[in-house]
Amino acid sequence: MRFVVARLFTVLTVAILFAPPSHAQATPFVWPLEPRPLVVRPFDPPEREWLPGHRGVDLAGREGQSVRAAGDGVVVFAGIVATKPVVSVDHPSGLRTTYEPVVSSVTPGSRVRGGDVIGTLASGHAGCVTPCLHWGVRRDRTYLDPLALMRTTPIRLKPLTPS
């Protein structure tokens, strides 16, 4: 029973965190790499925000591959963070997606549409043997699983017991 309640809480939390505000137009998100990439390291958030964890997913790619904005938004950062090239995009839904290591072809303030090229994949992401894209998403200070953006099946809550 605890598992069912915990799972239901997780499903509700994901639904609430990823639901756009009422004023935002819902637009589908797309994979930042084409073709659909292999996930080489999944989302593994820390128990507390100050603890170590993997706050995104690593997607297999190749050096120089085009990296695309996952959704419509505005580029809010394109530069270097701790020696790594990073691009961040704010979306109307209140989410922010981040992409690293990406050599940017956009500048802060640029409007992008889902699927627009925002840069090229560089090598050197820690933990990846071959070039890979670390793709993250957060709402405010809460990191979320970017793969949840790619779910195409709507969440349907079912009763725990038959009626």
Results as ranks from 00 to 15, higher is better:
residue 109 G to M: 02
residue 109 G to F: 09
residue 110 S to I: 00
residue 112 V to T: 03
residue 113 R to T: 08
residue 114 G to C: 04
residue 115 G to H: 10
residue 116 D to W: 10
residue 116 D to I: 06
residue 116 D to C: 07
residue 116 D to P: 11
residue 117 V to E: 08
residue 118 I to W: 01
residue 118 I to P: 05
residue 119 G to F: 00
residue 119 G to Q: 01
residue 120 T to I: 12
residue 120 T to F: 14
residue 122 A to T: 02
residue 123 S to N: 14
residue 123 S to I: 02
residue 123 S to C: 09
residue 125 H to C: 01
residue 126 A to I: 02
residue 127 G to Y: 01
residue 128 C to I: 00
residue 129 V to R: 13
residue 130 T to F: 04
residue 130 T to D: 11
residue 131 P to M: 07
residue 131 P to V: 04
residue 131 P to W: 10
residue 133 L to F: 11
residue 133 L to R: 02
residue 134 H to T: 01
residue 135 W to D: 03
residue 135 W to R: 00
residue 135 W to L: 01
residue 136 G to A: 12
residue 137 V to W: 10
residue 137 V to L: 12
residue 138 R to P: 05
residue 138 R to M: 10
residue 139 R to M: 07
residue 141 R to H: 11
residue 141 R to A: 07
residue 141 R to S: 05
residue 141 R to F: 12
residue 142 T to D: 03
residue 142 T to R: 15
residue 142 T to Y: 12
residue 144 L to R: 13
residue 145 D to Q: 13
residue 145 D to R: 14
residue 147 L to G: 04
residue 148 A to R: 15
residue 149 L to A: 05
residue 149 L to N: 07
residue 151 R to K: 09
residue 151 R to C: 04
residue 151 R to N: 06
residue 152 T to S: 15
residue 152 T to D: 09
residue 153 T to R: 15
residue 153 T to L: 14
